[in-house]
Write a protein that binds this DNA or RNA. Structure first.
Length: 865
RNA sequence: GCCGGGAUGGCGGAAUUGGUAGACGCAACGGACUUAAAAUCCGUUGGCCGUAAGGUCGUGCGGGUUCAAGUCCCGCUCCCGGUACCA
């Protein structure tokens, strides 16, 4: 029994592709041909190597790339490395190994692994964000941002992580702990580079309309940008001339219900307005708030706190005097940092008012059955003088007009989106191309780029907010080429996001020393037609990249406002299904899973330990899984996210070693829909391996027939062409593979396999399992790779069948199937159908009351009576 | 809480505009090959009743529309992802 020699085949073809540069996309392509730019989110080359999640998206794009080549497109399908980043630097800190060394090693490992999967990347276009030839242009873009006033310095409260010795972006801090490492972080005021992304908020929002992206991702970006419409309203401070507090509200219609005001503790007005009596209390509260991390501020949100400043403000609509408080439930960084509190219509304000015994006044009539506290729904206004009776929308318009007439307020749009904190106190990142001279910032001229990193022996944070570059004394001092004076370099570097904001442009023209990308080439290749990557980048990477791209568009560097036309997220691959039994550690007794919640016995609260059960020891009873030895004990069945600590990580290298790259690729695509989360099953790989072995035997065990194929063979081939083609176009790789399997199952029943059937089949297989396909293709006698062989053409004529099985229903239930021509007329079909004994039986003697005939689909007869 | 997605055999999943639910694969079972096992190959496989023909129930739960509902409508439950004092 000949086995399918995948090791030999796969290494042969990988070598062939590499030597012949089969997938090279020349700089000069025939631009009269259509183009297709298919892009993977490039990986961070971590020390752990590739995991099974990477090849999922990469295989999907590879299939599309190979398919589009066969359809005559010029295809751009590149790969590279997002290689700056903290892990290499932290490794350097521990071991003294230069991050460049670590990075290079990791890249080599990743490259080798990707090549072992047979992806059709144009390796001549490989890029690396840490390469000076690359980050020269990252720095160049920074200069563009700086020129356009979109990069500025600010003293901003930022997350400072003592352990990492660096500041972090909001996004890198989760629950007051660093995203990487989980170390505690605190707020500090530091000088930082900030990018004015908020200037583009509206356009970033609008641009989403033009993209073919998952709705969920667009929605996440919209939420992140967080546009809201409302008003800025001025409240004069009582007994203080020319002092007023500006608030932002989205509910100006409720202004008659404003019974107090709240300032954020950091608000500059606080000190001015606080009365002497309250001074101590206010200062105490401010100190407390500044020391609280955001974690504490949000974690303790159930219990709101605040203190009275002693001051009062005048409500401009009714001249009422209302107390001014400070409280940390109001954020200084959003809106004006101050609010008018309307407890009647706002749950947070209600909670605060209830706690401190502040007045509550409803200004929207809740429905009669309303039982809650604050009412945030719609209804007629009340207690609101000239607004009374108006519903929210109308009341808003009325009050906004009034406020603007009286010049005490104006319409205002606000965004949750903040400017992007762009500097990091790290070594392993792009240096920011500016210098300081007498406390002043000067951007460096383009011709001195790239600004390289200095060589360092130590990578320790300097312990100050300056980071390790502050220790590179020689590097630090420079003559400013513009002024000829001595200047000091910026010690901050860029965040890891920088390099990935524009890498897709560099692939188009990767070695150009003169420009970041040639405009003609950019125009031809952009936008990216298909972009596949993880949903974890739904907001940050994809929003930052869009922002930079819009700036480059405004600067005339690129030709499209949006970089990624179509975006797809591959779903996460979980570990193998696990069966878990629960056991009391104390008594060793099993506890049935339905009595367990949160790892505890539901009634007694006893803490239980989970025990992994081997499949062999599992019995099943209907929809429940039981312990074979103790059938009254139910098990939990679930797949978990792969993690080292859980020990359920699958290493792709081992799978490829055992089953080959083709079987691995095929399985990753066959598991289920690309976007979906799905559990891994190594048995499943065995299944796709078996499928490839069957193909191998089908085509190599017996000589192909040179005879003309029969109609049935042609029909099956063309059905397969149709299905595979449609499925690839719609990224339904799982059903495309099922179609290929069905073809093979059918072909095994034939006495002979005609060459004219086998050859197109191998072409259909090629995008999915390229190695075996190339091998078979060459055995057919072809000298060249099939990479550019034309995709099999669908001939609809061959799909037609003379006779089909038509289901016949009586009262909506199938009672028989009859063989008729697909387009047979109703009379004829009816005639045949009522001959069927089973149909007769259910129809009774009387003719049917109604007949529904959908040609080619169904005949449904409604019985009389 | 809010936003988004989902629930179909023992498991992963199929199912055009509503038109034979369970394609394809895994697992399981039976058989072939083998001294034996693994591998491989062939066959069976949603539950229940029936020797069979066939019947009957069945796509998270409860209603509805329709000749016909996994698919459409109304009301829920649970799971996953995101987000969270944004005024």
């Amino acid at each position: 029994m000949a086995v399918y020699p995948f090791r030999k085949i796969e290494s042969r073809w990988q070598t062939y592709w590499e030597e012949k540069k089969t997938f090279r996309t020349p700089t000069k392509v025939d631009t009269t041909k259509p183009k297709y730019y298919v892009l993977d989110m490039f990986p961070y080359p971590s020390g752990a190597g590739l995991h099974v999640g990477h090849p999922e998206g990469y295989t999907a794009t590879d299939i599309v790339a190979r398919y589009k080549r066969m359809r005559g497109f010029n295809v751009l399908h590149p790969i590279g490395w997002d290689a700056f980043g903290l892990p290499a630097e932290q490794y350097a800190l521990r071991t003294g190994t230069h991050p460049r060394i670590t990075t290079e090693q990791n890249i080599c490992r990743f490259r080798k692994q990707l090549k072992s999967l047979g992806f059709s990347y144009d390796w001549d276009r490989e890029i690396d964000t840490t390469d000076p030839g690359y980050f020269k242009w990252t720095q160049w873009i920074f200069l563009k941002l700086f020129e356009r006033g979109l990069a500025y310095e600010a003293k901003v409260p930022v997350w400072w992580c003592e352990e990492l010795g660096t500041t972090l972006a909001n996004e890198e801090v989760v629950d007051g702990k660093s995203d990487i490492g989980g170390y505690p972080c605190e707020r500090r005021m530091l000088r930082q580079w900030v990018l004015r992304i908020t200037e583009y908020a509206e356009r970033l929002l609008d641009g989403l309309e033009e993209t073919d992206w998952p709705v969920s991702t667009k929605e996440m970006q919209r939420n992140w940008i967080g546009r809201s419409e409302g008003a800025d309203i001025e409240f004069p401070v009582q007994d203080m001339d020319a002092a007023s507090i500006l608030v932002y509200t989205t509910r100006p219609d409720t202004i008659f219900g404003a019974t107090y005001m709240v300032l954020a503790p950091e608000h500059p007005m606080v000190d001015r307005i606080s009365t002497e009596v309250q001074q101590d209390e206010v200062q105490n509260y401010k100190d407390l708030a500044s020391r609280k991390s955001d974690l504490e501020r949000t974690e303790l949100q159930k219990e709101k706190t605040g203190v009275f400043t002693g001051a009062y403000a005048i409500n401009p609509v009714n001249k009422e005097s209302i107390p001014v408080w400070i409280a940390d439930y109001v954020l200084y960084s959003y809106g004006t940092g101050a609010i008018m509190a309307v407890p009647g219509q706002d749950e947070r304000d209600w909670a605060f008012a209830a706690k401190y015994d502040l007045p509550i006044r409803r200004t929207v009539q809740p429905p009669p059955d309303f039982t809650g506290l604050a009412y945030t729904g719609d209804g007629p206004a009340m207690n609101s003088e000239f607004l009374d009776g108006l519903h929210i929308e109308d009341a808003k318009i009325r009050i906004l007009d009034w406020l603007e007439e009286q010049k005490v307020g104006c319409r205002k749009v606000n965004y949750k989106l903040r400017d992007w904190l762009f500097s990091r106190q790290r070594y392993w990142g792009e240096p920011i191309p500016v210098v300081f001279q007498n406390e002043e910032v000067h951007s460096l001229p383009e011709n001195v780029l790239p600004i390289n990193l200095p060589e360092l022996d130590e990578f320790k944070p300097s312990g100050t907010p300056e980071g390790p570059l502050a220790l590179a004394t020689e590097w630090l001092t420079v003559t400013n080429p513009d002024t000829g004076e001595v200047a000091r370099r910026e010690t901050n570097t860029m965040p890891q996001w920088a390099g990935s904001c524009w890498y897709f442009l560099r692939y188009i023209d990767p070695r150009n020393p003169e420009r970041m990308v040639d405009p003609e080439l950019e125009k031809y290749w952009m936008p990216v037609d298909l972009y596949i990557g993880g949903a974890e980048h739904a907001v940050l990477h994809l929003l930052y990249a869009r922002f930079w791209h819009m700036v480059l568009y405004d600067a005339g560097v690129v030709s499209t406002p949006e970089p990624f036309a179509k975006l797809v997220h591959q779903g996460m691959i979980l570990g193998e299904l696990e069966y878990t039994a629960w056991r009391s550690s104390a008594t060793g007794q099993w506890v049935s899973a339905e009595k367990v919640s949160d790892g505890k016995e539901v009634h007694t609260g006893i803490i239980l330990e989970p025990v992994q059960i081997d499949v062999e020891a599992v019995a099943k009873d209907r929809e429940r899984f039981l312990l074979k030895d103790a059938p009254d004990i139910q098990l939990d069945v679930r797949a978990f996210k792969m993690s080292k600590s859980r020990g359920n990580v699958i290493n792709p290298d081992e799978i490829i070693e055992q089953y080959g790259a083709d079987a691995f690729r095929l399985y990753e695509m066959f598991m289920g829909p690309l976007e979906q989360v799905k559990p891994w099953s190594t048995r499943g790989v065995h299944g796709t391996f078996r499928f490839l072995s069957r193909i191998w035997r089908l085509i190599t065990e017996n000589p192909l027939s040179e005879k003309e194929p029969d109609r049935k063979q042609l029909r099956i081939l063309h059905q397969t062409i149709e299905r595979v083609t449609n499925d690839i176009e719609n990224l339904r790789m799982n059903t495309a593979i099922a179609a290929l399997m069905e073809f093979v199952n059918a072909a095994f029943k034939w006495k002979e396999l005609p060459r004219t059937i086998a050859e197109p089949f191998v072409l259909l297989l090629a995008p999915f399992a390229p190695h075996i396909a190339e091998e078979l293709w060459s055995r057919f006698g072809y000298k060249d790779s099939l990479a550019y062989a034309p995709w099999p053409e669908l001939n609809l004529e061959y799909l037609a069948e003379e006779l089909i099985d038509l289901p016949v229903q009586v009262n909506g239930r199938v009672r028989a199937t009859i063989r008729v021509a697909p387009g047979a007329d109703k009379q004829k079909v009816l005639h045949v159908a009522i001959q069927e004994p089973n149909v007769k039986r259910f129809l009774g003697d009387a003719p049917p009351r109604r007949e529904i005939y959908v040609p080619g689909r169904i005949l449904n007869l409604v019985a009389a009576k």
